[in-house]
Amino acid sequence: MLPIDVIAVLGKFGGYAVFVAIGMGFGAALEIAGFGDSRRLAAQFYLKDMTVLKTMFTGIVVAAVLIFLSSALGFLDFSQISVTQTFLWPGIIGGLIMGVGFIVGGYCPGTSVVSAASLKIDGLFFLAGTILGAGIFGESLPAFTDFWNSSFTERYLLSDWLGWSIGATLFAVVLMAIMMFYGAEKTEEFFRIKKTGGKWSWKISKRSYLAGAAVLVVTAALVWTIGQPDPVRKWSLMEGKYGGQLAARDVFIHPLEYVKTFNEASIKLVTLDLRAEEEFRKFHITGSENVKPEDVLNPEFISPLTQLPAQGVVILIADNEAVSVQAWKYLKVQGVNNVYILDNGLHDWNKLFEGKTISGKSINISSPPSEVLKLFPKDAYAPKIKISTKKRSGGLCS
């Protein structure tokens, strides 16, 4: 199942070569589209040349349709696709600043690189200004760090904001894009005819435009109809990818490793206790959350877990290993990172820590301090937790 980790497949050199090739291809596409010419880029703000809007929206809509169609058909695990972090208000203010710069200079950072590559003087000056501005921004950042990090969400999609399904959101975006394409085409036609004195018509003259729009609408409707795979179906598709970790018991951690993780300040630990509420009330680890096994199928419950920071770790506790394994599967395929299972639940917990003392004082077994680790041999357990993070996306115009 896609996506493919090209570095894992081709090695670091081969992977970077692919990235460079994609970057060069993107730059060539921008140059062919005329985005290396500041006059053409600035013309969109005067409604005379809407090439930028049409090209960018074509890329966005086609990519979105193909991504979610592939996901709906089980070819792609969308949860593994990098989504740029959202900083809402800093993004809005930054977008306004960049927009003003775009109008004044005629370039965005990415297109200035394209222009500079063809040695256009205005592009070279704009690129130099971009680099200088980035340096000034970096040096002045401490003065507004709090605002810069405000209104943050790790992975926030338009569908999350609207509260719609992926399919419904995609269909709406496609309809919006088609209306924008129509408006852009007719606006350009108006200014062309204004010069020649011809007659303007609201009708679409090119059948290829109608055919393209029809394909997009039908495909988006198909994605909406099929729907995105639920966790049960996703596991059936991805068992080959993750099943080996369960078979090798790589995700089952020893209680002592839990204590070590519990006491590490750098780790954001989330402990989900899947036992019955009555058992949880009798005894539970400090900070753990009592949840029902079916909660892991609820998107609203999953959302905060997918937005944990890079050092976030989720550990599952259950009386029955089958319950924790099932929960692990569903969390994993929904994009939750660093998920582990406390081996044998709490069955060995009391036996391991009961009667242990530190400096003559009994320890609180519901929250054992890190000092308790010194009471056991260093090789008492094999460390299993390995912090992995999703690759961040980014770009000159993102």
Rank of each mutant, 00 (worst) to 15 (best):
108 C>D: 11
144 F>Y: 08
393 S>F: 09
90 P>V: 00
216 L>C: 11
257 E>S: 07
319 D>L: 02
135 G>N: 09
129 G>R: 05
95 G>Y: 04
317 I>L: 00
169 T>G: 03
326 Q>K: 14
205 S>G: 10
152 F>V: 01
278 E>M: 07
82 S>L: 07
184 A>N: 01
326 Q>D: 14
56 M>L: 14
173 V>L: 11
156 Y>W: 10
14 G>W: 02
270 V>C: 01
398 S>Q: 14
252 F>K: 02
125 F>C: 09
197 G>E: 05
336 V>H: 00
167 G>K: 08
258 Y>W: 04
125 F>Y: 14
315 I>Q: 07
198 G>A: 11
19 F>P: 03
260 K>F: 12
287 G>K: 14
325 V>C: 06
12 K>F: 12
74 G>W: 03
341 I>L: 09
242 Y>A: 06
65 V>P: 00
259 V>G: 08
116 A>R: 06
87 F>W: 05
149 N>R: 07
296 V>S: 00
65 V>Y: 04
48 K>R: 12
49 D>R: 04
240 G>W: 11
267 I>T: 04
43 A>D: 08
224 W>I: 09
115 S>P: 01
361 K>N: 14
342 L>V: 09
54 K>H: 12
178 I>G: 05
27 G>R: 10
66 L>V: 10
193 I>N: 14
134 A>F: 15
352 L>S: 11
66 L>P: 03
53 L>I: 14
199 K>D: 12
374 K>P: 09
158 L>F: 13
128 A>R: 07
339 V>H: 05
123 G>T: 02
371 E>V: 09
381 Y>C: 10
187 T>W: 10
334 Q>V: 00
314 V>M: 02
266 S>Y: 04
96 L>P: 05
238 M>R: 13
119 L>S: 13
158 L>A: 12
150 S>W: 02
163 G>P: 03
47 L>I: 14
325 V>D: 13
323 V>H: 00
116 A>Y: 06
320 N>P: 04
179 M>C: 15
261 T>A: 02
314 V>Q: 03
110 G>A: 15
262 F>C: 03
250 D>P: 00
194 K>R: 12
5 D>G: 02
302 I>M: 04
219 T>F: 13
17 A>P: 06
33 A>I: 00
127 L>D: 01
302 I>P: 01
364 N>T: 07
307 Q>H: 01
47 L>P: 08
143 A>P: 07
357 T>N: 14
176 M>S: 14
192 R>L: 13
55 T>R: 08
181 F>S: 00
194 K>E: 13
128 A>D: 10
192 R>D: 12
160 D>E: 08
122 D>F: 07
262 F>I: 08
100 V>P: 07
6 V>I: 15
154 E>V: 11
141 L>R: 09
4 I>E: 09
307 Q>S: 07
